[in-house]
Computed example of a mutant assay.
Amino acid sequence: MNLVERDEQESELERIWSECGAGKGSVVLLEGSGGSGKTELLHQAAERARRGGGLVLHAGCSPAESALPFGVLGQLFSSVPAVEGPLARLQAPNSPLAAEAAPHDPARGAVAIGPQLALLLNEVTATLLELSAAKPVFIGVDTVRHADAQSLACLLYLVRRTGAARVMAVLTDDTAAHRSPFRTELLDQPHTRRVPLAPLAEAEITALLARQLERDEAERLAGEFHTLSGGNLLLLRALLEDHLACGGVRKDGYGRAVL
């Protein structure tokens, strides 16, 4: 499905993927408030990469798994047989490698990598670079703020070494997320790009509504929908569904749903 209301960001992700195929690696931090369309854009970009012959590695982060050492890294590389050995060593019960990536300051999330873990990550990185020589690699991490600290340290290790490779990493995050050391170092990388998802303007809301309504009706409703939703994509879609179901916006019910 084409995200008409996010066509600018979708086009930018497509352009960055094309550059990746030509040998220019990138890291994209896709930022927006909850319900802004980050996850949908990430999935579309991953599907585009897959259809284009790329290797897609994906992980979804959850608060329930944020204390699982190397959990996100395991998700990313679970479909890559060439790194089964290193992953098994990372995720083995009571693995000493987890201690080598233990946070120095849990409140800030700062993580250092010990020598044995660095050697293992060097092996994983070499495999990733070898894979990218055969086909472009797309790495997607959804809701990165909920990733475990060990995986975040490993991700930084990888992205620092893939700027000249055919590797594109897209990480989604909330605009209001805590400004962590991970985020600071990620944005310091010369090949990192921020792609913000701002609330939709009235003209973009008109385009969204016109996909399912007559143009005149879309233009008439756009201002009201903008006022009620604040330009939030998820809430706009709920309003549109409400309108299609009952022929109008149920303001009282909508207000209760938001609260």
Rank of each mutant, 00 (worst) to 15 (best):
L3V: 11
L158C: 13
A98Y: 10
S62L: 12
S33A: 12
V258P: 08
L119N: 11
G223T: 12
M168I: 07
P86K: 03
A88K: 13
P196T: 13
P106N: 08
H146S: 15
A198Y: 12
N94A: 15
L233E: 00
K135G: 10
G60M: 09
K135L: 08
V195F: 01
A165L: 07
L213Q: 08
K135R: 15
P181V: 07
M1P: 15
S78H: 07
N94W: 09
V137F: 01
H178Y: 12
E40I: 05
P63A: 12
H146L: 11
A112W: 05
P69G: 07
A133H: 09
L228D: 07
G37W: 01
N232P: 02
L117I: 02
G35R: 01
G230P: 02
E224T: 04
G60C: 11
L234F: 09
G34S: 10
A218K: 04
D174V: 10
G114N: 04
P136I: 04
V124D: 08
Y254K: 07
L152M: 10
L29T: 03
P196R: 11
E219K: 04
F138G: 00
Q116K: 13
S11R: 12
K24T: 12
D216N: 14
L187I: 05
V28Q: 02
I113N: 14
H43M: 10
L228M: 15
A64D: 15
D242Y: 03
F182Q: 04
L128P: 01
V111I: 13
T125G: 02
A257S: 09
G53D: 13
V56N: 02
I205E: 02
L197M: 02
A99N: 09
T192D: 15
T227C: 08
C154Q: 12
G34I: 05
E5N: 03
T125W: 00
A149C: 09
A210V: 11
L13G: 06
D252Q: 15
E40Y: 04
R215G: 07
A149V: 10
D7R: 10
Q150L: 05
H178T: 13
A101F: 05
L57T: 03
G74D: 06
L213E: 02
E19C: 01
T227A: 14
C61L: 02
L186W: 04
N232W: 00
S33F: 00
S151D: 06
L234I: 07
E214A: 07
V159N: 00
S26D: 09
V4W: 14
